[in-house]
Nucleic acid binder design. Structure first.
Lengths: 145, 145
DNA sequence: CTTGACCTTCCCACCATGGGAAGCCCTATC
DNA sequence: GATAGGGCTTCCCATGGTGGGAAGGTCAAG
């Protein structure tokens, strides 16, 4: 199976397959005489594994950990569960952050006329010299959401 | 005021101030004879504005729109409200995505022993050939969350 | 006048992904 | 057997925000 077929079968683009190989997330694959990458069913399965882990929001390094556990038949399921739980916690954190943003925006939007008049509490709040309105009580803001 | 002070006063790092200027998000600032950027209170206020908009998760191009409205004293508050509402919708979308992920992960984690035994439904699900378990009903997966 | 803190520009890195170019390879069709 | 097309290879570039750091100019305090 060439990379195109493997991509279609796994849902990972050819570009990303090469990238994952380059960064060492997946092992370097066997090559045909002409240099084409050749994929077996097992390898396509591994790509699908990566794809799904990605869909669950795992960062690449944790996908690497998951893959290692996947390959290790004497793994402890506790380790896998630990990674999943960690991921859940991280997602909860990000969700809470975004919900804070929504609450703040909603509060501001609710008090904005939303008509042809120029005065607008949203802009007023953003330009305030002091700390901005916070719908919930929070100490600091982590971005990269 | 030099860039360092402006950074401290606005909460935007000097690096980012230069970056925002470079990409045209904020106008090129006045320079001293020696080439140092010189900031007035108004400009620091603008930086603070940018900072808060970022804290609310606005992407840079929308912050540009907000800044334009901020400067435009004959703006329509409806336009500002529109941007806020759009942002709220986008946040809701991302929150829903992540909640789907959490639900899926939680379902899988709940059925995992989490002990020294190697068998683990999480890995089993990730390696499945068919569509993976989905906690909610969803059609496609958008990533970049 | 020296020292150290600050400023300038420029390049590099991250993460995950896509676009595209130049050049080789494989297969189907004539 | 030749040619066309699509697929493969590597390589470079871009994104969005952010940080790190080097090389060199500037400023204020001692």
């Amino acid at each position: 199976m060439n990379i195109g077929e493997a991509a279609a079968a796994s849902g990972v683009s050819a570009k990303m397959i090469r990238y994952y190989e380059e960064i060492g997330l997946i092992p370097a694959i066997r090559r045909s005489e002409s240099g084409y990458r050749v994929y077996s069913d097992r390898e396509v399965q591994m790509l699908r594994f990566v794809r799904r882990a990605r869909d669950l929001g795992f960062p690449v390094d944790q996908i690497g950990d998951l893959l290692a556990l996947w390959r290790d038949t004497s793994r402890h399921s506790a380790d896998v569960k630990g990674l999943a739980t960690q991921r859940i916690d991280e997602l909860h954190r990000k969700i809470a952050e975004m919900q804070d943003m929504v609450a703040t925006l909603q509060t501001l939007a609710d008090t904005c006329h939303g008509d042809a008049r120029p005065d607008c509490p949203i802009l007023a709040d953003l330009s305030r010299n002091e700390q901005p309105a916070r719908a919930g009580k929070r100490t600091g803001v982590r971005r990269s959401v």
